[in-house]
């Protein structure tokens, strides 16, 4: 195993981590504002990925643009999901929330299997053929674009939360919904819009992913688990922590796969996760909720 190999893994893992960050941010925001840990998060993302495939095939748009086109559609889906399923379980026992969202994941996964079959879909792109080379290190162009788009989207989110009235309302709701309600924040409306926008942002993440990745009916579960790990690793309710955790996880994932050349390699990632959580129970930045 050469240094070059490790460097390559670290770089591509880091870029991947940027896209994970966008996915995990949406989950962290939903959890922060309504206390619901959404196990169907990855499946909502998967809907976005299928959407991107369809839009790209129909219009010839690049997956990144197709992702942006998909935003309103995903917001509409978020709206429906929130009204039908999420709102009734805000404040319920965690077990009920977990089970309901797992049920939703079930439904989305089987619906995808029904409509799209088990075949995998991707968006073939010319970009993949012309990577950027830095010495021996190769940077995939779609991955880089995905990283940048995800970074911009995350930056917009940070700006929105810290500099707009609605951002204050969101943060107030996350801090203490009862107090926010008393201060005149329309908590229900904030929660609905946060869920709608978080789901919408998944369309952008889906576009980033489809630049180089593929979609099958089972990818949802993988991304759900991944984003859950990130949110907990970053510290519950800590958005900046989630960003850092996503990057760390992306790099760790690539490095473990590069270092351990075995079927057991992914186990190392989960052991690392466990160890990190034990050492930093309040998140990597130590600022997560103690719930």
């Amino acid at each position: 195993m050469s240094l070059e190999l490790l460097l390559q893994a670290a770089v591509s893992g880091f870029l991947m981590g940027g896209i994970y960050a966008l996915i995990a941010l949406a989950l962290a925001l939903v959890f922060g504002v309504m206390g619901v840990l959404n196990f169907a998060h990855g499946d909502l993302l998967m809907i976005g990925m299928y959407g991107v495939v369809l839009v790209s095939a129909a219009t010839g748009l690049s997956p990144f643009l197709a992702g942006i086109v998909m935003v309103p559609a995903m917001m509409a889906i978020g709206w429906v999901v929130f009204v039908l399923l999420i709102r009734p379980i805000v404040g319920s026992a965690p077990l009920v929330q977990a089970q309901l969202t797992i049920g939703l994941s079930f439904v989305i996964q089987s619906a995808a299997l029904l409509w799209f079959g088990a075949d995998l879909f991707n968006v073939p792109s010319e970009l993949a053929a012309s990577p950027i080379r830095l010495g021996a290190i190769v940077i995939s162009l779609p991955l880089l674009i995905g990283f940048v788009v995800a970074l911009v989207a995350s930056g917009l989110l940070a700006w929105f939360l810290s500099a707009t009235v609605w951002g204050y309302r969101v943060r107030a709701t996350a801090e203490d919904p009862v107090m926010a309600q008393l201060c005149g924040v329309p908590v229900q409306r904030v929660q609905r819009w946060v869920f709608v926008c978080a789901t919408g942002s998944l369309a952008i993440a889906a576009g980033c992913l489809m630049g180089f990745y593929h979609v099958t009916p089972v990818v949802g579960l993988q991304f759900s688990v991944l984003s859950l790990l990130i949110v907990v690793l970053g510290g519950l309710g800590d958005l900046r922590g989630a960003m850092v955790a996503a990057l760390v996880l992306g790099v760790a994932e690539a490095l473990t796969s590069a270092i351990f050349n075995s079927a057991s390699a992914p186990a190392a990632l989960y052991v690392l996760f466990g160890a990190a959580l034990l050492l930093k129970p309040h998140g990597l930045l130590g600022r997560g909720a103690a719930v």
Binding site: S105, F106, L114, A118
Partner: peptide, 13 residues
Amino acid sequence: AGSHQLVYGVALV
């Protein structure tokens, strides 16, 4: 394929 899981999931929810 997948329809029984769909029905199952909807029933569960």
